[in-house]
């Protein structure tokens, strides 16, 4: 039973890894740029919800309507100001420089968050925070379950957008072959902007969900980026649903390894999975063999 409980907790956290990873993968898939400050955007989304709750008592689930759009704007500004400069570069140089810019940006955003809000950890305690759902001996925290469900719905919405609308199809076409997309009358740069904004908005949504399920502090960014990266390496860039499942899988793997090997080694499983993927499937997603 305790194993089952661990699986439940792992899955709840892992779903958030999945949502975080989809945003990162969207940007990478379309722009061929890796934004390693994705986790810091998640952190900003978390703070947005925290302050909306603390100052005005806004329920974090409602503040999704603010954190998503707000981070879309942040992403748009970052793209226009920084990442768009890399568009004319060769693939490899573009990727490398996007990683460097993201790394610098991560530092900047983290320091700004410390200066603005101190390094303290912040958590949202809603009235329903402690409520659980009992399934026999297994306990499911309701707020976390709801956060996971909301994340899943957000991904479903993204899926519909990408498959059923013209701008969505333009994004997928650009991801597959930007030159062919341009020949279809698609403005590649506008599509890049849109994809970067959407990926950042997803980071904002993830941030709100993190603030519900966990706590935020200026330094959480890097570890969220890392989870998202590992999930993307595990899942590839194939499908949104696959990425979500890989996130849940990583969460469960972490939770079980913490249970069986001891909490100290909780994180090591991510590194091990990464190395195994490189050994077993050494091509595809992030580069050429």
């Amino acid at each position: 039973m305790i194993v089952l409980q661990n699986i439940v907790f792992g899955a709840l956290v892992g779903g958030l890894y999945g949502v975080a990873a989809v945003g990162l993968a969207l940007v990478f898939g379309v722009l061929k740029m890796l934004n390693v400050s994705h986790g810091e955007l998640i952190m900003l989304g978390g703070y947005a919800s925290f302050w909306l709750f603390s100052l005005w008592g806004l329920d974090p689930f409602l503040s999704l309507a603010a954190s998503g759009p707000a981070l879309f704007l942040v992403g748009a500004v970052l793209y226009l100001g920084l990442f768009s400069r890399l568009v004319p570069l060769h693939d490899e140089e573009k990727l490398k420089n996007s990683i460097l810019i993201g790394f610098g940006l991560a530092l900047i955003l983290q320091v700004l968050a410390i200066l603005a809000w101190t390094a303290d950890e912040r958590a949202i305690t809603t009235a329903y925070a402690g409520q659980v759902w009992r399934l026999g001996a297994v306990v499911v925290p309701l707020a976390r379950l709801a956060a996971l469900a909301v994340g899943f719905v957000a991904l479903g919405g993204l899926h519909l957008f990408l498959h059923r609308t013209d701008p969505g199809r333009a994004i997928r076409a650009t991801a597959e072959d930007w030159q062919a997309a341009a020949l279809m009358g698609i403005s590649v740069r506008r599509t890049y902007l849109c994809a970067f904004g959407l990926g950042s908005a997803l980071a904002g949504v993830s941030g709100t969900l993190v603030s519900i399920a966990d706590a935020v502090s200026p330094s959480i960014g890097l570890s969220w980026t890392l989870k998202a990266l590992i999930v993307v390496v595990l899942a590839g860039l194939g499908s949104i649903f696959g990425t979500f499942v890989a996130g849940v899988g990583l969460g469960i793997a972490e939770s079980l390894s913490a249970f069986f090997l001891g909490g100290v080694y909780r994180e090591v499983v991510g590194l091990a999975l990464f190395l195994i993927v490189l050994a077993v499937r050494p091509s595809g997603l992030f580069g050429r063999p």
Binding site: D166, R169, A170, R172, A173, E176, D177, A180, M184, I186
Partner: peptide, 16 residues
């Protein structure tokens, strides 16, 4: 666009 359907490819052609 090999990962997209025939119909989607055609719709994209009519994007302008």
């Amino acid at each position: 666009f090999g990962a997209m359907t025939v119909r989607e490819n055609l719709l994209l052609g009519g994007y302008p």
